[in-house]
């Protein structure tokens, strides 16, 4: 896959001196769904707004489908659609008028058939003659998506697209995003719902305090940074861990009734001794430690995200203290 967006050394320092982005480098591959995660104020929206032309970068370059977003802004923006975070709509216009306006604004000739298709896909067709001020919040969110899709963009930015929407709309939007991707549209989304990124994204980027700290394929990220846990329900409670099990990072839980083993995909004990589950089970057998049943679990993307962002925040707070 070739990069459809190349961001290089991008920085943004606002007039008050706040550094929203610090030398960000990122490549978005054509046709992928890329989820940009980060806490509030991390720089997600600033990054999107720079690529879309709403915020002026302090330094660095952004190339969208081969077009520099500053020098060749027309060609770059023509390819891009944006659904911003805020619900900002024209209150007095009808749904049809505002979506048609967006298509024209982006230089596309009128195409009522396409507008109809977009409105039908977003369940807005019946509301096409309704003034936007009379729509619910969820419907307004759909209108904003329809506006962004009106000019048939090849790259779509969704900034918190499901914030404040109900479960049904959320599911509809996930389905729409998948359909768009199947049609060749590259999608970059920011979200606070980590499960949304886990469900949809091909790759994940985590941004914290203006710095991109991780960019990885979702599966690899979860494999590399995710923790797995094996829990054994013991037949007899244990008072303490026997020294023969010291090679494994084990913990006794539930008053000695549970033996918990936390590990990652590449865990190797000191001295290169394997820490895999079969070895542990064999050792337990040798020690005649019986168990009634066992279960395994894997940490979610949310746990990985929290762990990464907290790890970054802690040294800074310690330094400040």
């Amino acid at each position: 896959m070739k990069p459809v967006i190349s961001i290089s050394g991008l920085t943004k320092t606002y007039a008050g001196g706040f550094a929203a982005l610090k030398k960000v480098d990122l490549e978005i591959q054509q046709g992928e769904i890329f989820a940009l995660l980060g806490p509030n104020g991390a720089g997600k929206t600033t990054l999107i707004n720079i690529v879309c032309g709403i915020v002026t970068p302090s330094s660095g370059t952004v190339v969208a489908d081969g077009h520099d977003i500053v020098r060749d802004y027309r060609s770059a923006r023509f390819k891009i659609g944006l659904v911003p975070q805020e619900l900002t709509t024209d209150a007095f216009e009808t749904v049809w008028a505002t979506v048609t306006f967006s298509r024209g604004l982006f230089g596309r000739a009128p195409n009522p058939a396409h507008i109809e298709k977009v409105l039908r896909e977003l369940s807005l067709w019946d509301k096409r003659k309704t003034r936007i001020m009379n729509l619910s919040g969820g419907m307004k969110r759909r209108v904003m998506i329809a506006k962004a899709l009106s000019h048939e963009p090849e790259i779509l930015f969704l900034d918190e697209p499901t914030a404040g929407v109900d479960v049904e709309l959320r599911r509809d939007m996930w389905a729409l995003v998948r359909r768009l991707r199947e049609g060749g549209v590259t999608i970059i989304l920011t979200t606070h719902y980590i499960d949304e990124a886990e469900e949809m994204a091909d790759r994940i980027g985590i941004i914290s305090k203006g710095e991109l700290i991780v960019v990885e394929e979702k599966a690899k990220l979860m494999q590399k940074l995710g923790k797995r846990q094996l829990t054994l329900n013991l037949q007899e409670p244990m008072a303490a861990l026997p020294p023969a099990l010291a090679d494994w990072p084990l913990a006794l839980k539930a008053n000695g009734n549970q033996l918990q083993y936390t590990f990652d995909a590449h865990a190797v004990a000191p001295g290169d001794k394997p820490q895999d589950i079969p070895s542990l089970l064999r050792r337990l057998g040798e020690l005649q430690i019986g168990f009634k049943d066992l279960s395994t679990s894997q940490s979610s993307l949310e746990e990985i995200f929290v762990s990464l962002v907290t790890d970054r925040a802690e040294p800074a707070s310690k330094g400040a203290a």
């Binding site: 770059a76 923006r77 891009i80 944006l82 911003p84 709509t89």
Partner: peptide, 14 residues
Amino acid sequence: FTGTIYELLSAPIS
């Protein structure tokens, strides 16, 4: 005032 200026600023229009 309404915030819809985002659309003008992000459009391929001089």
